[in-house]
Amino acid sequence: MTALLPHPVLSAFLLGLWLLLNQSISLGHFLLGSLIAVAGGLSISTIEMPRARLRKPAAAVRLAVIVLLDIVRSNIAVARIIVASTPPVKSGFVTIPLELRDHYGLATLACIITSTPGTVWVSFDSAKGLLLIHVLDLIDETAWVQLIKTRYERALMEIFE
C-alpha cells in the first residue's frame, strides 16, 4: 500500500480537491479523482525532497501569530499610504545578510516577506547569504535589517536548524 500511496495525505487532498472542483461525488468523478490522486502522490515521490524537521513546534506557532499580526499591521500601513495625499513615500531595496541556510526556512521566510504588504522578496544569493528585498516605505534601512533578522530569521533558525 505504501508503494501505491507514498503520500497519502497529498493523495487525499487531491481527491477532495477534484471532487470539490467538479461539485460531484459520482462514481465516475470519484474514480477519475482517485486516479489523479494516486498519480499525483507517485509523481511527488520521484522528486526526493528532504524531510523538513520542526525542532520546536511551539516556536512555529509563536512565529505564525507574529506573522499574522505583522500582516494586519502592514495592511493598515499600506492602506494609509495609498489613501493619504501626503508626499510620495520613498521606496527602495534593502540587502540583508542571512545566517539561515535551511531550504525550508528560506522558503518560509520568502512566504512571510511576500505575504506582508509593502515588502517583496527580490533575490537571494546563496553563495554569499544575501537577501535582497524591496520595501514600499523605506525610512531606515538598518531597522529593516534588524526586523528581518531578529523577528523572523532567529525564529526560523530556532524552528528548522
Rank of each mutant, 00 (worst) to 15 (best):
A39I: 07
L35T: 12
G40T: 06
L17A: 14
L10I: 07
V9M: 13
M49F: 11
I25C: 09
A3I: 05
A12V: 11
T46N: 12
E48C: 10
A52L: 15
P50M: 09
H7F: 13
T46H: 13
G28E: 13
S11K: 04
L20R: 08
S45I: 00
A52M: 15
G40E: 03
A3Y: 04
G40K: 06
L4P: 00
R51W: 11
L14G: 01
P50I: 08
A37W: 02
V38L: 03
R53V: 14
S45Q: 13
I25P: 00
R51L: 14
R51H: 13
S43T: 14
H7V: 04
G16R: 05
F13C: 03
G16S: 13
R55M: 10
Q23M: 12
I36Y: 04
S34R: 04
S43I: 06
S45H: 06
A39V: 08
L14D: 03
V38G: 04
S34C: 09
L32G: 08
L21H: 05
R51P: 09
G16T: 12
I25H: 04
T2L: 07
G33Q: 03
L27V: 11
N22E: 08
I25S: 10
L19E: 06
F30H: 08
P6R: 03
L4M: 12
L15K: 04
T2D: 14
F30Y: 13
V38Y: 01
Q23Y: 04
L54Y: 07
N22T: 11
V9N: 11
S43V: 10
L17C: 07
G40C: 07
L27S: 13
G28H: 07
I25N: 07
T46I: 12
P50V: 09
L17R: 02
F30S: 11
S24I: 05
I44S: 06
A52F: 12
L42V: 05
I47K: 10
Q23T: 14
I25G: 10
R53H: 15
L42C: 01
F30C: 09
M49Y: 12
L17M: 09
G33Y: 02
A52Q: 14
L17Y: 03
S34L: 15
V9H: 11
L10D: 01
I44D: 06
F30V: 12
G16N: 10
L14P: 01
S11L: 05
I47D: 00
N22Q: 13
S11C: 05
L10F: 08
S45D: 15
M49A: 12
F13T: 13
R55V: 00
S24T: 12
L15V: 06
V9L: 15
P50L: 12
G40W: 03
I47C: 03
M49R: 14
V38C: 01
Q23I: 08
G40R: 02
F13I: 14
S24A: 06
T46Y: 15
I25E: 08
T46V: 14
T2Y: 11
